[in-house]
Simulated assay, not measured.
Amino acid sequence: MSTHVQKPGWFTVNVFNRLVAWMTRRGISVWGSRVLAVRGRKSGQWRTTPVNLLTLDGRQYLVAPRGHVQWTHNMRAAGGGELHLGKHVDPFTATEVADDDKTPILRAYLKRWKAEVGVFFAGVGPDSPDDQLRRIAPDHPVFEITLKG
């Protein structure tokens, strides 16, 4: 497994993520944003972070543009979590997508959010050839989520 991680800068942590999370907690989705809540793999405490929820061919996915970050490790351990939009909470289970199956998901994700996250994909974009998307697939965990109930 790749150990690729791109840590967010000060502006992202202290301004952008906080603004998106604040809006999302108040029920305003910014291009599909949700607040992801997942239990910490060591502490058992709920951890939250803003994420972009991708719907593709009737399925829903969470993509980690910054790589193998804390929420991805926690998701693997917990097997699911909750997506929050305002007061609405959707519990879900998560299944990690194999690298060989990520190409269409990464392409759709980049098509939707390249302006926001494109810098984290090593120059690969939504119009890149499949082999380039397959090359970066190990660096970007993808989880298919299934809502409970």
Rank of each mutant, 00 (worst) to 15 (best):
S43T: 12
N52T: 10
R47D: 08
Q60S: 15
R59I: 01
G44F: 13
P50Q: 00
Q60I: 09
R41I: 03
G67R: 05
V51R: 04
S43R: 04
V51W: 07
G67P: 01
P65I: 07
V69S: 10
V63G: 00
Q60V: 01
N52F: 13
V51I: 14
T49F: 07
G44W: 12
R59F: 02
Q45I: 07
G58L: 06
R39F: 02
R41E: 04
W46L: 14
Q60N: 10
L62T: 05
Y61H: 03
G67L: 00
K42W: 13
S43V: 02
W46Q: 08
N52C: 14
P50C: 02
T48R: 13
L56H: 08
Q45L: 15
L56W: 09
Q70Y: 11
V63I: 05
A64F: 14
A64Q: 03
R66L: 11
V69Q: 09
T49E: 06
Q70P: 00
V63Y: 08
W71D: 01
S43W: 09
W71I: 00
K42D: 13
T72M: 03
R59K: 15
L56G: 04
N52G: 14
N52Y: 12
T55Y: 07
N52A: 15
T48D: 06
A64L: 02
G67T: 02
R66P: 00
V69K: 08
R39P: 00
P65R: 10
H68R: 07
W46I: 11
D57P: 00
T72Q: 10
A64T: 04
H73E: 07
R47Q: 14
D57H: 14
G40E: 10
V51Q: 05
G58K: 02
S43A: 04
T49C: 12
R39V: 00
Q70T: 13
G67D: 01
R39N: 05
